Amino acid sequence: MKTGVLCIHGFTGGPYEVQPFVEFLQERTDWTIIVPTLPGHGETLELKKITAENWLMAAELALRKLQKEVDQVYVVGFSMGGIIAMYLATRYPISKLVLLSAAAKYIYPAQLLQDIKEMAKEAVEGKLEDNILYKRYSSKWRETPIRATFEFIRLVRIVEPYYSQIKIPVCLVQGKKDGIVPYTTAEFLFDQIGSEEKELIFSETGKHHICYCDDCEDWFHRASKFLNKKGADN
């Protein structure tokens, strides 16, 4: 049986957000893995005229194309991509979901403040340019239109009523030091999702970009084991 994996990145991000996990799977499987760039995203953001529907449609088109090439599809979604992944699971025959820092709830002020404090400390010490979070988001904070942020919030609200309709196996991965999505969000989703087979993995040191956390290899192995586990549909 030929397997395909659709990986979906987050709001204002790009394929790099899931790249470490993608490479981990590529090294260990013969799966067909695709990571589309959502409309308005990539290294340069062009989000002014983009809507939630544009993101959903792009993900649907990528999924439909992949489904023509393989026998079964797994979907991996990071942050906003996790919300899109759940949307797809209510509309298409997907075998399994892996939700990474899924943004069902967002902005955890205490940890975000701590991240900013770390940036400030490193700035004083002359190390700010070495901070990965700063490198990725210093420009994006300036480039992201308010309207695009509202579209992201609207996307979450579009999908939220349907969490209980998800019945396929789901693996949730969440960092306890996430400054964008409260780590309790994963527990909320775990309870809301209708699947009988579901797994919740916490990273003690993980921040929002869970694929770059210090203990990512640990959850890479666990999530990979979840995807490789044989079930009724495999």
Results as ranks from 00 to 15, higher is better:
147 R>Y: 08
112 L>P: 04
60 E>G: 04
233 D>M: 13
72 Q>P: 00
188 F>D: 10
121 K>S: 06
182 P>F: 05
13 G>P: 12
198 K>T: 07
69 E>F: 00
204 E>A: 15
167 K>H: 09
186 A>M: 05
200 L>F: 12
120 A>N: 05
9 H>P: 09
96 K>N: 10
171 C>F: 09
201 I>R: 14
134 Y>G: 01
200 L>H: 11
146 I>K: 13
224 S>C: 10
54 N>T: 02
101 S>Y: 02
159 V>A: 04
74 Y>C: 10
48 K>T: 10
2 K>L: 09
106 Y>W: 11
159 V>P: 00
61 L>E: 15
168 I>K: 03
214 D>F: 08
73 V>L: 01
86 M>K: 13
39 P>G: 06
110 A>Y: 05
166 I>Q: 08
67 Q>V: 08
38 L>G: 04
74 Y>Q: 11
137 Y>C: 04
5 V>K: 03
134 Y>F: 14
133 L>I: 11
217 E>P: 02
17 E>H: 08
17 E>P: 13
171 C>Q: 05
150 F>M: 07
61 L>Q: 15
154 R>T: 08
207 K>N: 05
157 R>K: 14
83 I>S: 01
126 G>D: 00
129 E>R: 00
45 L>W: 08
123 A>C: 02
189 L>P: 02
45 L>K: 13
116 I>L: 10
97 L>P: 15
210 I>C: 08
100 L>I: 09
23 E>R: 15
171 C>D: 04
161 P>L: 12
128 L>I: 11
175 G>C: 04
208 H>N: 02
23 E>G: 00
114 Q>W: 06
85 A>S: 15
33 I>G: 12
85 A>E: 04
102 A>E: 09
60 E>L: 13
189 L>D: 01
224 S>Q: 11
225 K>L: 14
164 S>E: 15
42 G>I: 06
167 K>Q: 11
63 L>S: 08
45 L>M: 12
133 L>V: 07
23 E>P: 04
11 F>C: 12
120 A>G: 06
129 E>G: 00
16 Y>E: 13
60 E>Y: 10
214 D>W: 03
90 T>R: 07
194 G>F: 06
164 S>P: 00
123 A>F: 11
21 F>E: 07
186 A>P: 01
96 K>Y: 07
138 S>D: 14
163 Y>Q: 09
217 E>K: 12
226 F>W: 07
26 Q>I: 11
88 L>M: 10
20 P>A: 15
87 Y>V: 04
111 Q>G: 00
20 P>G: 14
189 L>G: 01
48 K>G: 10
117 K>I: 00
115 D>W: 02
116 I>Y: 10
79 S>F: 07
232 A>E: 13
223 A>N: 06
9 H>Y: 14
153 I>E: 01
181 V>K: 02
49 K>W: 01
135 K>N: 08
55 W>F: 13
206 G>Q: 07
161 P>N: 11
178 D>H: 00
73 V>E: 01
220 F>W: 13
169 P>I: 04
21 F>L: 14
185 T>L: 04
64 R>T: 10
110 A>E: 12
171 C>Y: 07
84 I>A: 09
202 F>H: 13
187 E>M: 06
86 M>V: 15
215 D>G: 12
3 T>K: 15
166 I>V: 15
88 L>Y: 03
55 W>A: 05
97 L>C: 12
229 K>I: 00
43 E>D: 15
119 M>V: 04
191 D>L: 08
